[in-house]
């Protein structure tokens, strides 16, 4: 039983770390602000959830998993909100989506400015 749990937890941790790595790569490589934010914002939520799940599986008493669950809930609330706040602040500051080379602003749909 514990061996299965250990393997499951290891898989969760590895997958979470891999997702974080892809997020970091996207953050460095993507062209404009919104794509970068997307890369880290989306991967971060799932990666954190996976890592916390992996840690929960490792614990042998009941209190640490409960605390980790609370942390997970907090992250699930705060992380997307933080991404939203960043994107909104950037939009209000006049940052617009750019083309794939990051050189010029993309044309926006009618009615948007």
């Amino acid at each position: 039983m514990s061996a299965v749990l250990a393997i499951l937890s290891g898989a969760c941790l590895l997958l979470g770390s891999f997702l974080l790595l892809t997020g970091a790569l996207g953050f460095l490589r993507f062209a404009d602000f919104y794509a970068r934010l997307h890369a880290c914002g989306v991967t971060e939520t799932l990666a954190t959830a996976l890592i916390i799940l992996g840690l929960m599986l490792l614990s042998d008493s009941y209190l640490p998993p409960f605390k980790l669950l609370l942390i997970l809930l907090f992250v699930l609330f705060s992380s997307p909100t933080a991404s939203h706040a960043l994107a909104k602040a950037a939009w209000n500051a006049g940052v617009r989506p750019r083309d794939n080379q990051g050189k010029r602003d993309l044309p926006l749909p009618a009615g948007e400015r």
Binding site: F74, F77, S78, T81
Partner: peptide
Amino acid sequence: PHTILQVVSKIL
């Protein structure tokens, strides 16, 4: 108003 932020912060 920052609606989304305000709602989430009200929960948190």
